[in-house]
Amino acid sequence: MGYIPMGIGYAALAIKAGLSPIQTVSFSVLVYAGAGEIIAVTMLASNATIIAIILTNFVVNLRYMVMNTCVYNKATKTSLLLNVLSAHLVTDESFALFSLMEESSIWFYIGLALISWLSWIFGAIIGVLVLDLLPIVVTNSFNISLYALFVAILVPSIKENKKIGLLVAITAIINVVLQFVIGNWSLIVSTLVGALIGMEIIDDDYLLNDNDGVEC
């Protein structure tokens, strides 16, 4: 599972941002959103306000509403209780895996999603336990792991659709420029502005019909 090294990478950043070991692990248990968590601790490290961090998390994690809509449209043998209990476990990876599988039982999904959640928590626990003991160069090297994941998620889409690459470049530039003007709010603003620009430059067909082959 790639989630364990990523969890370690997240823990490295969280500790660096000033979270205690308990806070670092509870964040992974309670929020369970790799990108959201890393944004939060990165913003915290650069003295962002708590309100800015929470709002940014809301925007970045809003996509789980779409993903869970797909998951519960597909899942069979469900009940309200099972849905509510498993709602917390959706991530980009668990959603993508389940959507692409023939298996549609909610129990199968819960098994898959639960293992991912536990691996993510386990990674954070290993991170807070061992990072103190490791030389600083190793800790710094783990800092790259989530960025490596982000790059690795983006590259296949860019390879497939060059306009996604263009959108990524535009958004990155907007973010860099805005940082000088509005500081830490630039992440949320450039994400939203970038998506608005994307409405114009990305073809509907690419996103809506060819999204991992998933129809919801």
Binding site: Y72, F150, L187, T191, L196, I202
Partner: peptide
């Protein structure tokens, strides 16, 4: 969506906007 169990339908524009957010969020993160 877990509580509403499939009663949500997004219009295509909203869905497209939400689909684009991960790309732009990742770009701004990196």
């Amino acid at each position: 969506p877990a509580v509403l169990m499939g009663k949500i339908k997004f219009n295509r524009k909203v869905e497209k906007f939400l689909d684009l957010i991960p790309y732009t969020a990742l770009a701004a993160l990196i």
